[in-house]
């Protein structure tokens, strides 16, 4: 068994700054997206600048910075990249891609007020989240180490809020958000969270709806209550 000191080893590797390499690649990705999106726009002249000129110039600048960062990753030492930091983003990006693919296969028309792709995404997300919640009970350390726990439940809570705020009202969507996102913290105690979720929701309904008079529905039960 050879002795492996971590530092010197990394500086002799081909990629000495993985974080900068990843950062550069992400910038190049953004630039690529923007380049595609701005393809049909007219550039115009300096006198009469077209709508496409500034986005194109900015895209090129962004790409230049991306290349610079990639290049610097080979030249100088830097921080490592941990998969756990990005696992949730990658997972959700995969879900979006899957939903977009499935959405284009499904017949058009809205499903419960959502475009098909968005509906599929919500469905997939819910399945994944519940699966993780079950895992959470069994092997919570794995969930924490994977880095999935925080983002998946926080984003899940927010999506649940967005889906229900208009159709069911704050009194439903508020606790839903608090309870789902609450699962994101490893030291959550369920009983405490329930009490807190209800209290926070009531407080916010009072503040937003009655003190500030914002037109946010508090509770909707179709045909019976509209608050």
């Amino acid at each position: 068994m050879t002795h492996r000191p971590p530092r010197p080893r990394s500086s002799r590797a081909a990629v000495r700054d993985p974080q900068n390499l990843a950062a550069g690649l992400v910038l190049l990705g953004f630039a690529g997206l923007a380049w595609i999106a701005s393809a049909g726009l007219e550039m115009g002249t300096l006198f009469v600048m077209g709508p496409g000129l500034v986005p194109r110039v900015l895209t090129l600048c962004l790409a230049a910075f991306g290349l610079f960062l990639c290049a610097s990753a080979v030249v100088q030492d830097g921080m490592p990249v941990r998969l756990a930091d990005f696992s949730a983003v990658l997972l959700i990006a995969a879900l979006i891609a899957a939903a977009a693919a499935a959405g284009s296969l499904l017949p058009g028309g809205a499903v419960i007020g959502l475009p098909p792709a968005a509906f599929v995404f919500c469905l997939l997300y819910l399945v994944v989240m519940v699966a993780l919640a079950v895992l959470c009970v069994r092997r919570s350390t794995w969930l924490d180490r994977s880095g999935l726990r925080g983002p998946v439940f926080v984003i899940g809570g927010v999506i649940a809020f967005a889906l229900t705020v208009r159709s069911a009202g704050l009194l439903v969507s508020g606790p839903l958000l608090a309870l789902i996102s609450g699962a994101a913290a490893p030291d959550t105690r369920f009983g405490e969270l329930v009490v807190f979720a209800i209290a926070v929701t009531l407080l916010s309904v009072g503040l937003f709806k009655y003190v500030l008079q914002l037109p946010v529905p508090a509770l909707i039960i179709p045909g019976i209550v509209y608050l």
């Binding site: 009194l171 209800i198 209290a199 926070v200 929701t201 009531l202 407080l203 309904v205 009072g206 503040l207 709806k209 009655y210 508090a218 509770l219 608050l227």
Partner: peptide, 10 residues
């Protein structure tokens, strides 16, 4: 308490 007050109002 504030929350309960709001609920009553609601």
């Amino acid at each position: 308490a504030a929350g309960l007050a709001a609920l009553t109002l609601a």
